[in-house]
Design a protein around this nucleic acid. Structure first.
Length: 443
RNA sequence: UCCUCGAUAGCUCAAUUGGCAGAGCAACCGGCUGUUAACCGGUAGGUUACUGGUUCGAGUCCAGUUCGAGGAGCCA
């Protein structure tokens, strides 16, 4: 019977079959220790010379890293056994080699980033990458799970979008027959159309940004989920967001405890993630950042924290601010000038808008950007003209405000940033199976 | 686009003031009944990123180029 490694604990004393790959091997005299991966975990398989015939022992002794194999043996509980989850090992009775692997480039020692990225197709086999990507799949499942359970309808939005509205410098241009098209950087405008058909909707897929960003939190292709809700104001939106994010985090803690432990993640920092999250206005955030700056002694850091009212936050500002909280923090009411044209202004204070960014703790930055959208057609038109956007491109979007307009709100959550935060990893590139970066399109 | 740093064996790195190209890991051979990135002995492994310059002599110094890393900017 083929048994997955993550279920070995249920089969102590039984003889089982594992099929997988040789992750690592070491030997000591009449013993060979094989670490075998099967996709669900890593288990130690011990070959003892007296238990097997000479040929089996010899092939175990010389088996190369990443060779594919089928191994049969008795499951034993042993505290010494390493692995994921570990604690159980196989006493090998039989070993079948499916393919003897050529010399494998990624060894058990440390490697440089460039080398690993060139070998991303192999690197994903390494435990650390495997663990992160397992968390990623849980996060993606939790995203769909929560939204589906709460009555959201997944309506796909186009990835090929028409000629552009505003500056196309940060969009990827593609040939579209005799015309030009652009890879979508958001599905939001379409979401806003979709709510009038379905009430609560979301789109979930890859988005593309041609920005020349070269930081630990930017990819040129990343996954984003964007829920949009009719009859919803900003306050209601924030309640949705904190329930949603908390659910995702707790799912990962429940389903990927082994993976997170392997990554060395402090689970206490995740279990505390539950509603409500602190809310702070942009005005107060600027004041707090100035306060932090006043207490900063390092001159370089001090100058990075420079801010005046009206500026958008940079990475150093976000990091400094989030270090004040153990939960994600909402920053509301950004200056309208630094936000998108479609955000609803605050009544009586048009210079700020009903926007909210959700900043993850521990310096992971913005994981959600959201807002209440302008519902009045005249105001929307005014804003479009103020920003010198081509009115014709937005005809259909303005239409939405003419036929039964309602207050509505939505947000976008970046999958890779969320995964990076949950896993506690340094760089967002490890949160994507095949990350696309400024200088990286291979493999 | 800017700032800083880097490129030497398959990988990670060392090489003193400019003076014989080195080690660990991986590979291969041998030893060991509990290894956890084992340990011990042995074998093999080099266009020092590229182009040019200085010099009796360049991995090392100079100029340019390419590629990469960290940070900033950018991120409706």
């Amino acid at each position: 019977m083929v048994t997955p490694i993550n279920e070995l604990a249920k089969h102590v004393g039984e003889t089982v079959t594992l099929q997988g790959w040789l992750y690592a091997r070491t030997d000591k005299g009449k013993l060979v220790f094989m670490q075998v991966r099967d996709g669900t975990g890593i288990a130690q398989c011990v070959v003892f010379k007296r238990d097997v015939d000479e040929q089996t022992f010899d092939s175990a002794l010389h088996l190369s890293q990443e060779s594919s194999l089928v191994v049969e043996g008795e499951v034993r509980s042993d505290q010494r056994a390493p692995g994921i989850p570990g604690g159980y090992e196989l006493s090998v009775k039989a070993l079948q080699i499916v393919q003897r692997a050529e010399e494998y480039p990624i060894g058990p020692k440390e490697h440089g980033v460039d080398f690993l990225m060139d070998n991303r197709h192999l690197w994903i086999r390494s435990s650390r990458q495997w663990a992160v990507l397992r968390v990623r799949t849980t996060v993606m499942r939790a995203i769909r799970g929560w939204l589906d359970e709460h009555g959201y309808v997944e309506v796909s939005t186009p990835i090929l979008t028409p000629s552009a509205a505003e500056g196309t410098t940060n969009l990827f241009e593609v040939n579209y027959f005799d015309d030009k098209a652009y890879l979508a950087q958001t599905g939001q405008l379409y979401n806003e159309a979709n709510i009038f058909a379905f009430g609560k909707v979301y789109c979930f897929g890859p988005t593309f940004r041609a920005e020349k960003s070269k930081t630990r939190r930017h990819l040129t292709e990343f996954w984003m989920v964007e829920p949009e809700v009719a009859f919803c104001d900003l306050d209601q939106l924030l309640e949705i967001e904190e329930l949603f994010v908390s659910y995702i985090v707790q799912k990962a803690v429940q389903e990927n405890a082994n993976e997170l432990k392997y990554l060395g993640r402090d689970l206490n920092k995740l279990t505390v993630i539950s509603p409500p999250y602190p809310r702070i206005t942009y005005d107060d955030a600027v004041a707090k950042i100035k306060e932090i700056q006043a207490h900063t002694t390092d001159p370089e850091q001090k100058s990075l924290l420079d801010i005046t009212w009206g500026m958008d936050f940079g990475a150093p500002h976000e990091t400094a601010l989030t270090q004040l909280y153990e939960k994600p923090v909402f920053v509301t009411g950004f200056p309208s000038a630094v936000k998108a044209f479609y955000m609803e202004p605050y009544p009586g204070r048009a210079e700020v808008c009903k926007s909210a960014d959700l900043l993850a703790p521990e310096g992971y930055g913005e994981i959600i950007g959201g807002s209440e959208r302008i519902s009045d057609p005249d105001l929307l038109l005014t804003r479009i003209n103020e920003q010198h956007l081509p009115e014709s491109a937005y005809k259909w979007y303005i239409d939405l405000r003419k036929y039964g307009s309602v207050p509505h709100s939505g947000f976008g959550l970046g999958v890779e940033r969320t995964v990076a935060w949950i896993c506690g990893i340094e760089h967002i590139r490890e949160a994507s199976p095949y990350p696309r970066l400024l200088n990286r399109l291979y493999p």
